[in-house]
């Protein structure tokens, strides 16, 4: 079953790196949606069926942490699997995000790291689809 993915990052180059990595990791991707901040991401989530979101933290307008809080508040999308891909180095903040059910990938990442974590999460996402 292919997964619809939302990639949220204010850098277009970073979004394309993440998408390329997902393809290389052999993730069965359906549609790919992109957003450059949290607010755009919520619009995409309202308008489309999305199975997995990869989200940066530091973004203008609405940051990734605010986005995750908002997603968890909305019953229709509260269970969305989320992977945070960020330079964030604060253990305090990383733990806060993990408590909200997000996985964490540290930038700079290697494609292999993203591949492994996405594989784990997409197994869960696939299970949820059944």
């Amino acid at each position: 079953m292919s997964l619809n993915v939302l990639v949220v990052d204010d850098s277009a180059v970073m979004r394309s790196m993440i998408i390329r990595t997902l393809e290389m990791a052999g993730v069965d991707i359906g549609q790919v949606f992109q957003a450059s901040n949290g607010e755009e991401a919520l619009q995409q989530l309202d308008a489309n069926w999305i199975d997995l979101a990869l989200v940066d933290i530091n973004m203008p307008v609405m940051n990734g942490e605010q986005l995750i809080e908002e997603v968890r508040r909305r019953s229709a999308i509260a269970d969305l699997p989320i992977i945070v891909v960020s330079t964030e180095g604060s253990q305090t903040r990383i733990e806060r995000l993990q408590q909200k059910g997000a996985k964490f990938i540290h930038k700079p990442f290697t494609p292999e790291t993203i591949g492994q974590i996405v594989e784990g999460v997409t197994e869960v996402a696939n299970d949820n689809q059944v």
Partner: peptide
Amino acid sequence: FRKILWKNGLMCKAA
């Protein structure tokens, strides 16, 4: 090495 794999769309399974 990593750059060439990335350019060719290949992952390194183990290093």
